[in-house]
Amino acid sequence: MTPRAADFPERRAAALQTLAEASLAERGPRRRRTRAVVILKDGAVAAEAYAPGFSAGTPLNGWSMTKSVMGALIGTLVKDGKLSLADRGLLPEWTGDDRSAISLEDLLRMSSGLNFSEIYADTGSDVNAMLFDAHDAGGYAAARPLESIPGTVWKYASGTTNILSLIARRAVGEENYPSWPRRALFDPLGMDSAVFETDATGTFIGSSFLFATARDWARFGLLYAEGGRDVLPAGWVKFSATPAPRAPNEKYGAHWWLKLSKELGGETSAAAAIPADAFHALGHEGQCLTVIPSRGLVVVRMGLSIDIKAWNHAEFLKDVLEAA
């Protein structure tokens, strides 16, 4: 990121700063608890704001925003020729059963066909068992049975991303794996604050646990706004933002959301004002990273919105688009 471009009008920057600061205030009975907002315009910080107790140096968990980072990391392995989208027979434990038909693209497009319940409110769900009651997150997810033919049904599942993390571990090799995210992605992007947490076996929990400052999350978004530079393979950003064939309402690409959920203000007039080329990394409790290449915008919002409806991201984006 660079200092703000000289040709970006001061009054627009001031308007964005006002929006960023206003996002910290509570509004209505649902607690928003916004903790950090960073808005990039044309690669430069146009506005940022932090709640008391938080700063530009506070690493915050992206929760499921981490999935988009794991998608990018898989992209680096595709670029290096270690994996390809058409690869099947991805895990030795799937040898000899129908799961060997699952392709890398199926996993990136959340269309593995594996049975997996993604309900945080249910302590018996697979996502809770995997994250909070299992040693080996990827192994837990990989052991789930098929419930549909791979590639034929879209189903968002955190287990899918941890399977990708396990596949990456085997592709990279044990010796190189611990430092791999830093070498492949964080260092080239200058994401110095990034801390990628692992399960007890040392596999990065690609579904849920990457901590980084809001500025570093913005740096990750900027990589996509700028087409992947020389970090991602040619065409990877377009692939990521192309609707998964089985995703309802074209709402999901490849480890990026293409539409906001109703809880975040999707399917409203505010959401309709968001340009069609926008895509989002979204996480538990209102973590949001939006990339809008056509407007040169990257918007990061981190918070603790336990009631997800507390944060209307579509409305915030509409205001940002009007101000920028």
Partner: peptide
């Protein structure tokens, strides 16, 4: 160091720190 926090169920050792 370098890996943040992880649950430590059972006696399974944690991953080695990054080199």
């Amino acid at each position: 160091p370098g890996f943040g926090a992880a649950l430590t169920p059972g006696a399974l050792p944690l991953a080695a720190p990054p080199r």
